[in-house]
């Protein structure tokens, strides 16, 4: 519930993918939920450094997210805190990217977790149990967020 994991096979070496993930030029090519433009991308790729990305969606709305790099180990690991810039409530969530060489390409494992506050996360770890799973299956059978 409170985390999302996605895996991609990419026909490019981990170093190329890492660069695309972290450089403003790279980010400008892929960041966002639709094909709207990235308006601003700033990265300071070192532990404690920050990133800020602003994008416009095709519906005209603009959104900005920012955070702090928590782990920077090119070309295999990248971890950063995350929040929507206009969302001042609640703690940051966290983005973790692991890049593993696979043949001539890369297996990318992406995780966005801590999507709710700690209390909820703890109850999640303790097992939201069959109750919630059943409810989710019944009312949102197509939802497959979370690995």
């Amino acid at each position: 519930m409170t985390s999302l994991t996605l895996v991609r096979r990419i026909n490019a070496q981990p170093a190329t993918v890492f660069e695309a993930l972290t450089t403003p030029e790279g980010i400008a090519h892929w960041w966002g939920p639709d094909d709207g433009p990235v308006l601003l991308a700033e990265t300071d790729v070192r532990v404690g450094g920050r990133f800020r990305v602003r994008f416009r969606m095709l519906d005209g709305s603009e959104h900005e997210s920012s955070g702090e790099y928590l782990r920077v180990e090119p070309p295999h690991h990248l971890e950063m805190s995350w929040r929507w810039s206009d969302d001042t409530a609640g703690p940051d969530s966290r983005v973790i990217v692991a890049l593993r060489a696979a043949g001539t390409g890369t297996e990318l494992t992406f995780t966005h977790d801590r999507l709710r506050d700690d209390a909820t996360a703890r109850s999640h770890e303790a097992g939201w149990g069959g109750a919630l799973d059943k409810l989710v299956r019944r009312y949102a059978p197509e939802a497959r967020a979370g690995a």
């Binding site: 990419i10 190329t16 990318l108």
Partner: peptide, 13 residues
């Protein structure tokens, strides 16, 4: 993220 990672993959390739 689904859309972003698809585009990331295409760009890296």
């Amino acid at each position: 993220w689904t859309h972003s990672l698809d585009r990331l993959a295409a760009y890296a390739e």
